[in-house]
Write a protein that binds this DNA or RNA. Structure first.
Length: 213
DNA sequence: TCTATTTGACCATA
DNA sequence: TATGGTCAAATAGA
């Protein structure tokens, strides 16, 4: 049983890595030629399906009582400390990344706070174009330093068009509409180093995903 | 001089 | 009341 979970987690992690690398290459390619939105959207869709399958299986194996993926799972206290459960329950997309390079948007840092449950401070960012009505924001928190990993939590939706390379089709955080009722832009494609955990998913899936990282 | 970052203070919430 | 989130003045860098 535990071995099955481990194997699934390994597959999930590999799928995440594939997602990250493919997305990164496609973004690079897109900056040279602007005609591969269909390919990106298609790739994103297939990878999302793969990731969801892994997450569902892991969640079910870890908690056989789960009848439906939408039913929240219980997360061990240890994990709760690591992953800030209060935030997870707000159904925001979370990204675990090893670097904080461009994610396709321009951000302005507006705050930094030490977090009690973590030895690393949390940094708060808003979209650079909030004055244009864009309500996207995120916060970044280092979750370990060797190797360096950051958890990035996104909230709100980008309504601005100021994306890197002026490619408005590049990214929209599907499922992040808790604080926005705006429609997602056409062709949501996750960004460089992104591991999307859309808000529609349940906590057990998220927790399963996090445990692998 | 403009823009981005830092940081202390204030506010909201549990 | 403790904690997290945001604001805004001060500061740094280009």
């Amino acid at each position: 049983m535990e071995m099955m979970v481990k194997e699934l987690e390994r597959g999930l992690q590999a799928a995440y890595q594939l997602h990250i690398e493919l997305t990164q290459r496609l973004i690079e390619k897109q900056q040279q030629q602007h005609n591969n939105e269909e390919l990106m959207a298609s790739m994103d869709h297939h990878i999302a399906v793969i990731l969801q399958s892994f997450q569902n299986c892991i969640a079910r194996l870890r908690n056989p009582n789960i009848q439906d993926p939408s039913i929240p799972n219980t997360i061990p206290a240890d994990d709760a400390e690591c992953f800030d459960i209060a935030r997870l329950r707000q159904s925001e997309p979370v990204v675990i990344t090893t670097d904080l390079k461009e994610d396709g948007f321009k951000w302005r840092k507006y705050g930094k706070k030490p977090i009690l449950s973590s030895k690393y401070p949390r940094e708060y960012y808003k979209c650079r174009y909030t004055e244009n009505g864009c309500r996207a924001f995120k916060y970044v928190q280092m979750i370990c330093d060797a190797p360096t990993k950051y958890r990035v939590v996104y909230s709100g939706s980008h309504t601005c068009k100021h994306l890197l390379g002026d490619s408005p089709q590049m990214l929209n955080f599907c499922g992040s509409s808790k604080s926005s009722n705006l429609e997602p832009e056409q062709g949501h494609v996750s960004s460089e180093c992104s591991i999307l955990v859309p808000g529609g998913q349940d906590d057990s899936e998220k927790a399963a995903a996090y445990r692998t990282l």
